[in-house]
Design a protein around this nucleic acid. Structure first.
Length: 479
RNA sequence: GCCCCCGUCGUCUAGCCAGGCCUAGGACACCGGCCUUUCACGCCGGCGACACGGGUUCGAAUCCCGUCGGGGGCACCA
């Protein structure tokens, strides 16, 4: 049974990079019929907040990622918050003390900083010197009596080469001398990340650790801990990181990078899911639009591209448009669009929203585009844009809308077919056609020279509002 | 500085592991055209890449080496 986990630290909204990691874990779990575990790494008290955890869970759910065990749903390996697992870590720290894998280090942060600087200056790798590694019983006792604080460091076997097979990168070899003895327990008694992940992953019986490539160089340290504790090592898969336009790791500097921001900008979750999956992975058949089910069916962790990917905003936007205009069912789309209509102050009932969307969905890329495209369906009092004004400052145009007004007045109501019939009549009677005929009507009804199909607009807004708008145009531009 | 990872159109990628089917395929973006009362959608077309240099081989995007380039990591952060 495959067991994978997503282990974010709750320090804000879900970041795109993390979202993709979560997504790949989820997809892999589903593909293999395994389980996904959500574990909250909230040991950094400075930055972790409870609200952040809630936002994280909310974003994950919105994206369509479900987990089988986690802080909100429980599970047989609870608790799933690191802050609640202290007693467990204590136990394993004790084991390492017993087995002699860790030792006390009395060096102060200042001393270490100095050492580091010195090493760097001499062109040597900045790692711990091993100064406290072989302290005698007496020395330790003396330092303790002086009340000097200490950390516990892992005794790294000199010169050992750790070899592991990464499912994405292939065989990776790292000489442990690259990092030297590292801290396991801080001077305040709290355990450090590299240690707690191992304990948690092992105890939660994680079989595949799928995470960002930024963790690749942590892996040998963790393997050392697995071995020291006698745990079975999981398989590792390091996902290439996501880059911004400037090819550096994607961050806030690159604009909105949280899934929440995209959600608020009118992206639909299916497009987000699809788009994120495409970052480093591609379906066998030559298409970009793939459903969650198809992705799960086809996905294999070993097919993940191993080069970092620049986040392609334009493509995600296009994909979102595809979902809006071609994939989502109209009722469903309407429900999702309602908060956006409301946000823009466009008030109506479900049926009206649905009618509007039916007409404008083809021109939407995000739900935020509703603001502009739906404008003529909701606002009767509008300003005329400059290039639009020019069109009505013309006698022939005034004539057109005047005639249009009269003809509409004579009708009970106006349908798309009525509109076509009327414009045809005007064409014959006034001998105007094409732009000269339609532009004046468009401008009178919308104040703009571009936008929705007018014949559809009139049908949706109805006779009265059409007349009202023409009246206003007539009043404004004389006639 | 050291270590690790990576290198196909501007971008996401297919192809690479099992070398010839590749005059390198698709998608986004961009440009042009068509459709159309406008914008958009849609359709058609165009531009555009195997980082470089050596090998190996009858033959290399695919295998090997080097160079260059990019990224990540080197904490009492996660």
């Amino acid at each position: 049974m495959v067991r994978v986990r997503f282990a974010p630290s709750p320090t804000g909204y879900l970041h795109l990079g993390n979202a993709r990691t979560a997504l790949f874990n989820y997809i892999y779990a589903k593909h293999t019929g395994g389980k996904l575990i959500l574990r909250v790494e909230d040991t950094d008290k400075e930055r972790s907040k409870k609200e952040y955890e809630e936002m994280l869970i909310d974003d994950l759910k919105w994206l369509g990622i479900q987990w089988d065990e986690g802080p909100d749903v429980g599970g047989e390996h609870a608790p799933y918050r690191q802050s609640e697992r202290d007693h467990i870590y204590k136990e394993y720290i004790e084991k390492l003390k017993q087995s002699g894998h860790i030792y006390k280090c009395f060096c102060t942060p200042e001393e270490l900083e100095e050492e580091r600087k010195k090493a760097l200056a001499e062109g040597k790798p900045p790692r711990y010197s091993g100064k406290c590694r072989n302290l005698s019983e007496e020395e330790i006792k003396k330092l303790e009596e002086e009340g000097k604080p200490y950390t516990w460091r892992f005794r790294v076997p000199d010169g050992e080469v750790i070899v592991f097979e990464d499912l994405i990168k292939g065989v990776v070899e790292i000489n442990v001398n690259e990092f030297g003895d590292f801290v396991i327990v801080r001077s305040d008694g709290s355990p450090v990340y590299n240690f707690v992940v191992v304990v948690d992953d092992a105890l939660m019986e994680i079989t595949h650790v799928i995470r960002g490539e930024d963790h690749l160089s942590n892996t040998p340290k963790q393997i050392l801990i697995y071995r020291a504790l006698g745990f079975k090592e999981p398989k590792f898969a390091h996902l290439p990181i996501i880059l911004g336009e400037d090819k550096s790791k994607l961050s806030k500097r690159h604009g909105s990078v949280s899934v929440r921001a995209f959600r608020e900008d009118g992206y639909v979750s299916e497009a987000m899911f699809n788009g994120l999956a495409l970052l480093g992975w591609h379906p066998k058949k030559d298409t970009e639009v793939v459903s969650k089910e198809e992705i799960i069916e086809e996905f294999d962790i070993e097919d993940v591209h191993n080069a970092p990917a620049v986040f392609d905003r334009a493509k995600l936007k296009w994909l979102n448009g595809v979902y809006i205009r071609e994939i989502l069912d109209l009722d469903d789309l309407t429900n999702r669009a309602i908060p956006f209509f409301e946000k823009f102050g466009y008030k109506a009932d479900f049926e009206y929203y649905k009618k509007v969307l039916n007409v404008i969905r083809d021109s939407l890329e995000t739900l935020n585009d509703i603001k502009e495209r739906a404008f003529p369906f909701f606002v009767d009092e509008f300003e005329y844009e400059n290039d639009a004004k020019e069109i009505l400052e013309n006698e022939e145009s005034i004539n057109v809308i005047k005639t249009f007004y009269e003809k509409v007045s004579n009708l009970e109501s106006i349908s798309q077919a009525d509109f076509k019939a009327i414009t045809k009549e005007i064409q014959k009677e006034l001998k105007v056609k094409g732009k000269a005929l339609f532009m004046p009507i468009r401008v009178a009804l919308t104040g703009k020279t571009s936008g929705v199909d007018i014949s559809l607009l009139v049908e949706v807004i109805g006779k009265d509002r059409v007349l009202k708008r023409i009246e206003k145009a007539l009043k404004t531009f004389g006639g």
